[in-house]
Write a protein that binds this DNA or RNA. Structure first.
Length: 426
DNA sequence: TCTGGGGTCCTAGGACCC
DNA sequence: TCTGGGGTCCTAGGACCC
């Protein structure tokens, strides 16, 4: 039996989260910046209309923002993550089968909803999310995930649809597929667009009508799946249980360039500390990690350098102290002075569930002590905020000349008691 | 002239996503 | 002065094996 999927996503999600807690932001242009206040990563319709593009570096648009009265915010991930969870709680009431695809997008299985009720349900969901969380959404319906995603794109682009597009309706399906460019298909990037153009595809309908074998030949199995998905033959299942992650990375650009080894070690130690937190939250561990750092391509005229070091740990672990030790070892191994480093990070792959990891013959004693200590540290940081308790090797918070900039961050309205909004009635 | 023929595993790199 | 930070999947090709 053929299935029906909905893809619901929050409009300009990060900006909408900011608007929920500040009514003055309604109907004015708002943008949210990436880490380090680097580029624009979320824009309201008003900001888009003023020409702000996705990924625009902030230093280039600062003047425009000021002149046009665009409200600018640093990323507030604590807020967005919490709002995302609230939105998903609402979705749960509309379908028992949900895949949380990203912070602002979820797939819902609506196969059991009668065809004449689907759009009604989608609109009900839209208005319920709006009412209960304050977040505006768009919903796309389709018989495969790729079609639901495409429908969602159409729902966003065509104002007359009022935020809901149903491609399970044969009339709409025929109407829209020949009016949308191939580049809008989920999984089709610039490189694939060029290949599709060479095959004579000007629209999504052309892609759908390709010979699947030809699609496979030019674009691997990914291209073949695309053709089938567009025809309504599902190749991608709903992933209702989040897969165990395979890798984990903590990487950051510095707010100021780093030129001395001690600072680099401190920065990398802080990344290692953060990595430990992330791994412990999912009971995963690693027995090797890659440390890297490099200069900036934008520093023209300065010597460039990009290095990495793989450090092996005696056994799989998520202990912050062990990770810091390994990370600093990596820095020492490849450090060379005389460069203006702009970014550093730690990457792990091949994560293992820690309970299943082999127990090393030595070090068991340390591990028995470190477990409770890490738990205590995590508990303190949950309660008093990240960085409340850090290993001395991760450095003083004050001295972090390398740390990330968030100069325009809004309060963590929903996750910090001290920052909960106050309402006055008079 | 002809120079075996499969397998598996691993890694690097490309492409794409949000 | 100032240009994000995560992820996933796929393939080709080398190393190695019998």
């Amino acid at each position: 039996m053929s299935r029906v999927y909905a893809l619901s996503d929050g409009n300009s999600f990060y900006c909408s989260c900011e608007r929920v807690f500040d009514s003055r932001l309604a109907r004015v242009p708002v943008i949210v910046l990436s880490n380090n206040d680097g580029c624009a990563i979320a824009r309201t319709a008003e900001a888009k209309a003023l020409g702000i593009k996705m990924g625009d570096p902030f230093f280039k648009i600062r003047q425009t923002c000021h002149a046009q009265g665009i409200r600018v915010y640093s990323s507030n991930y604590a807020l967005y993550g919490d709002m995302s969870a609230r939105v998903n709680e609402v979705y749960q009431r509309f379908s028992p089968r949900i895949e949380i695809y990203s912070i602002d997008e979820s797939f819902l299985d609506l196969t059991d909803v009668r065809s004449q009720d689907r759009v009604v349900l989608a609109r009900d969901m839209q208005s319920t999310v709006q009412k209960w969380t304050g977040i505006p959404t768009c919903v796309g319906l389709g018989s495969t995930k790729t079609l639901a995603k495409l429908a969602n794109h159409i729902a966003k682009k065509v104002p007359e649809l009022d935020g809901v597009c149903d491609l399970t309706d044969p009339v709409a399906y025929d109407h829209w597929l020949c009016r949308i460019a191939p580049g809008e298909i989920w999984g089709v990037g610039p490189s694939t667009v060029r290949k599709l153009e060479a095959l004579g595809c000007d629209s999504v309908a052309d892609v759908r009508d390709l010979d699947p074998r030809a699609a496979r030949k030019g674009m691997t199995v990914v291209g073949e799946r695309l053709v089938y998905e567009l025809r309504g033959v599902a190749c991608l299942d709903l992933e209702t249980v989040a897969a165990t992650r395979k890798g984990c990375a903590v990487t950051r650009s510095f707010s100021d360039r780093v030129e001395d080894q001690a600072t680099m070690e401190q920065a990398v130690a802080a990344h290692a500390s953060r990595l430990g937190e992330k791994l412990r939250r999912e009971a995963l561990g690693t027995d090797h990690l890659t440390v890297f750092f490099h200069t900036s391509e934008h520093d023209r005229g300065n010597p460039q350098r990009s290095v990495s070091a793989v450090v092996t740990l005696p056994e799989a672990t998520n202990d912050t102290l062990a990770l810091i030790k390994a990370a600093t070892t990596g820095v020492r191994r490849v450090w060379r002075p005389g460069y203006r480093y702009s970014k550093a990070g730690i990457i792990t792959t091949d994560l293992v569930p820690l309970a299943a990891s082999q127990r090393a013959l030595i070090g068991a004693l340390d591990r028995e002590r470190s477990g409770p200590m890490m738990e205590a540290m995590d508990a303190c940081n949950r309660r008093w905020g990240r960085g409340a308790v850090v290993p001395a090797s991760a450095g003083w918070m004050k001295a972090r000349s390398w740390s990330t900039k968030f100069e325009m961050r809004s309060p963590r309205y929903t996750t910090r008691v001290a920052e909960v909004p106050t309402v006055r009635a008079s």
